[in-house]
Simulated assay, not measured.
Amino acid sequence: MPDHDVAIVGAGPVGLLLACLLAQRGVDVAVYEMRAGADDRSRAIGIHPPGRAALDDAGISAEVRAEALALEGGDVVCDGRILASLSFTAAQRVLILPQHRTDALLRQRLSRLQEGALHFAHRVTRVHDEGAAVSLSFETGREKTASFVIAADGVRSGIRRQLGIDWRERPGTGWYAMVDVPDAHADLRARLHCESAGLVESFPLPEGRRRWVASDPQRMLDDAPTFIDAIRRRTGIRLDLPDGTAPTVFAARQHRASRLTAGRIVLVGDAAHETSPIGGQGMNLGWAAAGRLAAAIERSLGTGVLVLSDYERPTMRAVAGAQRRSFFYMTMGRPARGPVLWGRNVVIGALGTAPLRRRTADMITMRGA
């Protein structure tokens, strides 16, 4: 008999949520994380309707709502003029909560469902599908077995590389700089400045803070004075960053794996697809996929027949759609001048008109994803 029904490699938000969904179904699950402790970086902040539904299914909706902000809508601005303004219905509502807090709530939930399921400082070096089970080898020399192994080990997934699964680049690449700052006048709306000199986004955060993101194709906005100057030149807004604040420069890229399953080994989350954070879809995409995967694993364990295609096919379709949307968002935020800028602003304005407003809000909030 295998040591566990399911072994999940990686304790990020998707791996943790999948573990909770499985444990609720009575599946014996073990989560192995190579880090020695929790990742306290803020990272993803937006919880879209599919993510809200997944967190509801995991049993932490009340805790998330108690800490999160509810985004009321957003405005797209260019040269001081609002091109489009959207307000979200209750069904479209996006919650704002830094990823490290969502992760903490998922860890707490998992510990209540299955004490001792999460194992830090466990680096998996090799997996091998033996037919009836999968073996896992650890850096320490120990070995474990499981009926299924789930690779939730991120965009640089060692398991994906070991399996030889292609990592295919998709359109949509760019560099950005990000900083979270105190904001005494924070409201509950997002603002996207699609300016001629480049994109600037700002989002409210809990506890009176706000996140600012600026496109940074030259990777030069890595210090406070340069970042402040770029925001001022593009938008006219003068930020006041606390002493010692340093922006984080990151790359937005898009990839997806050529396949998500190899026998009893399955890719999920960032190991399966890297989706640009512009538009905030990646984590929510992984959570929605985790719900499909939990159901497929439960059926497979119950019947003894692998039905993982029930997870793979719809997930690949959802990923393709999300990456197309992200590419569109990135295109709308690129520097532009003259007729190109005018044409882009016309498109953005049209998307905010009454006939299209609801559909645009559904697209932005991943309704139906």
Rank of each mutant, 00 (worst) to 15 (best):
H4C: 02
V6P: 13
I8K: 12
G10A: 11
A11G: 03
L16V: 08
V29F: 01
A36V: 08
G37A: 12
A44L: 04
H48D: 04
P49G: 13
R65S: 03
E67Q: 13
L83P: 03
L95S: 07
I96Y: 00
Q99C: 08
R101E: 14
L110Q: 06
R112C: 01
R112N: 02
A117Q: 04
L118E: 06
G131C: 06
A132T: 08
S135F: 09
T140Y: 02
R142A: 15
E143S: 06
V149I: 05
I165M: 10
D166Q: 12
E169A: 15
G172Y: 03
A186E: 02
L188R: 14
L199K: 00
G208R: 09
R210H: 09
Q218D: 11
R219K: 15
M220P: 00
D223E: 13
R232Y: 10
R232H: 15
T235D: 09
T245G: 01
T248K: 01
V249T: 14
A251H: 11
R256Y: 11
S258V: 01
S258E: 15
R259E: 05
D270Y: 08
E274T: 15
P277M: 05
Q281N: 09
G282V: 07
A289H: 05
S300H: 04
V305A: 14
L306G: 00
V319K: 00
A320H: 12
G321M: 06
T331R: 11
R334T: 14
A336Y: 06
V346T: 07
G352P: 07
A354Y: 05
R358Q: 11
R359V: 09
A361Y: 03
M363K: 10
I364A: 15
T365P: 07
M366S: 15
R367Q: 14
A369L: 15
